[in-house]
Design a protein around this nucleic acid. Structure first.
Length: 207
DNA sequence: TGAATGATGCACT
DNA sequence: GTGCATCATTCAC
């Protein structure tokens, strides 16, 4: 929280933004975590070095970005749920449009594509990455980026301190979309968000 | 090999 | 507020 995410596009430059909402997934005992079944091919990187990126496809279409947080052998990760985009805004919009076009397979339906373009052009900048799937779309992320070192200043996908960020109030709530996990995991206050920030995901963002 | 199921977002009512 | 798109990953057989 309070750091910046930077995604370098070799052709079009970087998109950067401030992380304003995250969720923690802690250990195999956390029934909401991808590590709840133990180590698998998909989640192996969660057992790796802290600072590595873990990206996966959810609901068959959205890419979510996580950061491994604890030393090797203990599967923990933080899901980046929302970002306030600071630079590369137009590239972020283009990424959003491209992702949605790919998703809907318009097959040359120019009118439908134009409607998506118009809607995203009208989306306020602060809502371009206000959800975990939207972060993936706006920053042009995909699961093949798993394993990148987010702490490496030379990495095309990285996290840096944000000296420009002033003091903020951090609010905690239960995590979103994990009803299947059961108690006590559904109630654990492991979602963190910047209070009052307009880039926080709806609908619980106002909580 | 097969079936169930999501760490979601959008269109429509 | 409800329904749906869409498929990799997972577990059970």
């Amino acid at each position: 929280m309070g750091c910046r995410l930077i995604a370098e596009d070799p052709r079009h430059g970087p998109v950067t933004g401030r992380i304003v909402e995250v969720e923690a997934y802690i250990g195999e005992e956390d029934r909401a975590s991808h590590a709840r079944f133990g180590r698998t091919t998909r989640n192996a990187v969660m057992y790796g070095e802290p600072g590595l990126a873990y990206l996966y496809l959810v609901y068959g279409m959205h890419t979510c970005l996580n950061v491994v947080t604890e030393p090797s052998g203990r599967p923990t990760a933080v899901l980046i749920r929302a970002i306030e985009i600071l630079t590369g805004v137009e590239l972020a919009r283009a990424n959003r449009i491209a992702r949605e076009a790919a998703l809907k397979r318009f097959r040359g339906d120019a009118a439908a594509l134009a409607r998506v373009g118009a809607r995203i052009a009208a989306t306020p900048t602060e809502r371009l990455a206000s959800g975990p799937g939207l972060v993936g779309a706006a920053f042009g992320l995909d699961p093949t980026m798993t394993g990148l070192d987010l702490c490496d200043p030379d990495s095309p996908l990285r996290i840096e301190l944000d000296p420009g960020a002033g003091p903020v109030t951090v609010r905690v709530t239960p995590r979103v979309g994990i009803a299947y996990a059961g108690e006590p995991w559904t109630s654990r206050p492991w979602r963190l968000l910047v209070a009052g920030n307009r880039s926080v995901s709806a609908p619980t963002g106002s909580a």
